[in-house]
Design a protein around this nucleic acid. Structure first.
Length: 277
DNA sequence: ACGAGCACCTGTGTGC
DNA sequence: TGCACACAGGTGCTCG
């Protein structure tokens, strides 16, 4: 579900609430969400530890705990991390972390596609996608030059390219469609076909949609909730995503939806012409 | 090396 | 109303 802006919002909230808390107990209601190590080992590693920081990288978010362990979450499509100072736990909670002061952190996940790990310092290879992640939008490393370098020679369609985490960390389907709209680039263009002007425009557009997404508290299309269980507001500002059949906010042309790399892709056929040069 | 297709899941909206 | 089907903020696998 969440892309980088949504995970960042959760991270900021949880960092404020969880640092210094001791994990008194853990209740795993769905074993298969624990990808590493086994659920019983996971429990042994986590129980009794104190949280020193909450970190995000791309769409991953984790708790730093004692002895160099990290409790890492990937929320996939419908995962949510909700903190409650009152100790509120809904029936739908999949994993519950209880703290020494009776507050709780619940992991919710309707579709149960998420992934949870407890990784020791030396076990970095367990999640290869974390190590192979490309530069993140808004980072210093993510420059127009970086983008130009990784686009060069790639025949992949630009839409597919943007959401590949090994190239750009954190961008998902919504923000990719929105960035391509702002940059006036058709999603089916090949990555290597972009000229330097378009690359600069796309770089700027990606940074813009991601930073505005964060500013608006994320995009709630259906399931996304922040660390307090509330919706985001950025869905009100989307130009193309989920707007099939509606008028373009710039030119009034009807927004179209096609499938690119297996993902629904929304664009304005006038603002994003395939032959634009 | 890359893309297509599918698998993993549940819930919701649509059309008949 | 009910049923079948398509589709959903993601990723990782197999296969050609």
């Amino acid at each position: 579900m969440p892309e980088m802006p949504e995970v960042e919002i959760i991270k900021r909230y949880l960092d404020d609430k969880l640092v210094g808390k001791n994990i008194k107990d853990i209740c795993i209601k769905l074993d298969r969400l624990i990808k590493y190590p086994s659920p019983s080992k996971f429990e042994r590693r986590v129980k009794g530890k104190t949280i020193s920081a909450v970190i995000r990288k791309g769409k991953y978010i984790w708790l730093e705990i004692d002895k160099g362990y990290k409790v890492i979450f990937h929320l996939r499509m419908t995962g949510a991390l909700v903190y409650s100072s009152e100790g509120e736990v809904l029936d739908s909670a999949r994993i519950v972390f209880s703290f020494n002061d009776s507050s709780v952190l619940c992991y919710y996940d309707t579709r149960t596609l998420g992934a949870v790990y407890c990784i020791a310092t030396e076990e970095t290879g367990v999640i290869s996608a974390l190590g192979n992640m490309g530069a993140e939008p808004l980072s210093k490393e993510f420059s127009p030059k970086y983008l130009a370098n990784i686009l060069a020679g790639k025949s992949t369609k630009i839409k597919t390219f943007i959401i590949k985490q090994e190239y750009i960390g954190g961008v998902g389907n919504i923000y990719a469609d929105e960035a391509l709209f702002l940059a006036n680039i058709h999603p089916l263009r090949s990555a290597s076909s972009l000229n330097s002007k378009e690359i600069k425009k796309l770089h700027k557009a990606i940074n813009k949609v991601i930073s505005e997404g964060i500013k608006d508290g994320g995009t709630t299309f259906r399931d996304y909730r922040n660390g307090a269980g509330e919706k985001g507001r950025h869905q009100e500002k989307l130009n193309v995503y989920a707007r099939k059949g509606m008028p373009c906010t710039v030119c009034n042309t009807v927004i179209e939806k096609i499938t690119v790399g297996g993902r629904g892709s929304h664009y304005c056929p006038r603002c994003q012409r395939i032959n634009d040069k």
